[in-house]
Every structure is written in structure tokens, then in C-alpha cells.
Amino acid sequence: MNHFHVFFKKELRESVRTHRLLIILTIFFMFGVMNPLTAKLTPDLLAKFLPEGMIIELPVPSSLDSWAQFFKNVTQMGLIVVLLVFSGILANEITQGTLINLLTKGLSREAVITAKYAAMLALWSMGVLVSSLVTWGYTVYLFPDGKSHNLVFAVFCLWLFGAFLLAQLVFSTTLVKSSYGSLIITGAVVVFLNILQVFPGVQPWNPLVLATHNMELIGQNLEPSFFARPIGLAFLGCCLLVVLAVVVFRKKQI
């Protein structure tokens, strides 16, 4: 536990030094501001670029559009940025040789993996928190319509999906040498989950719905209980992947 604590602190300091924290906070803050603004301005912009005399009925934007932007941006660009920023987290230390000293001095390998995962989770949580709070604030300011429900739960689902992908990233960094290899494996897992969506029998279990069906939750078209099985599976997946990562990393030659 002590090893974990020390290494976790070192990871957090490193995130500040390598500007990981700054990147994640500013990018997620930017999303937070952009989401409500895009929702508000899109109809106006469309109207401006339409040819003279053409009339189409544009729906009045609501808080739902703002949150739709949130879930679109954070699941796509947001997760990509987070995965990119963390992709080299283990590979760089192995190639630079900085880990060898620590490990020969008795730092446990479990501590390396768990502390790295915990640091990733901490930064991802901060990003999601900043982005959702800023989106929420501006959405209330622009669209005080009260049409959006289950916000905390919907954001939690997205957060858990991110945690699942990060666990996947940690596991894949123990399998391959390069940071790009781990990204490719993680990307392949997302593609695989997308393919699984085709089979109706798998759908109610697929963790992917945690990142794709959030708007149905906010618009109250789906019951929160719909997410129980994916949540359970994603949580199990996180634990299993981290345990597997520890097992593989213990046997790895550095």
C-alpha cells in the first residue's frame, strides 16, 4: 500500500510536469463551453447560409441539444485525447530505463500498474467533472427549460466507460512495447464492441451502451435500470483487466 501511495504521488507530479493535466483540463473545459454554444448557434448559422428565399422549419434548440453535444464531444474527441495523452505512460518509462532503478530497489510491480491506473482515473475524472459542470452551468444559463433528467447518472455511465477503456489501455501497454501498439489494441476493442452491437442478444450487456445511449437516459426514453448489466460488466472488466495487467507485467522482462 505504501509503495502504491508513493508511486501514485510520483505519477501525479509527472502528469503536471508533462502537461498532461493542463491538456486534459483545458480541452475538457473547452468542450464544456462549446457544447451549449454550438447547440445555441447551429440553427442561426444554418439559417444564415441558406439561399435567399428558402424557408425551412428549424427546431428551437433546447437543453437536450446542449447535452447531446456534450456526449458526442466527450465520447469522441475527449476520449481520444485522454487515450493519446496516456498511451505512452508505461512504454516511455521502460524505454528510458527509469523504471529499472525503482524496481531493483524493491518497488513492487503491482504498485506500478495500480498507481498508473489510479493516476489515469484521477485525471479522467477531473476532465469529466470540469466538462460536465461547465456544460451544466452554461446550459442552465442558455436553456432554462428543465427538459434534461438523470444528468448525474448519464455522466457517470460515460465516466465508467472511460474507466473501462483506460483499464484496457493499461492492460495493452503491458502486452506490447510501443505506445502506438497499445492504442491500436484499445481501438480494436472499441471496434469489436461496436460490431457486437449488431447482435440483439449481446446488446443489453454491452458496455458500449454506456457511451452511446446517454441521451435516451436524459430524455427519459430509457429506464436507468437498462444500464445495470452494462455497468456491472464494465466494472468487472475494469477489475479483471487491471489484474491481468499486473499478472502480465510481473512476468515481463524489463
Binding site: 508533462t18 502537461h19 491538456i23 493519446l84 495523452v85 498511451s87
Partner: peptide, 9 residues
């Protein structure tokens, strides 16, 4: 936004 991120990554 993307430029600095690409640089740091």
C-alpha cells in the same frame, strides 16, 4: 487547441 495537444503528445 489541437496544435498544442499534438505537440505535447
Amino acid at each position: 487547441f489541437i496544435g498544442p495537444v499534438i505537440y505535447f503528445v
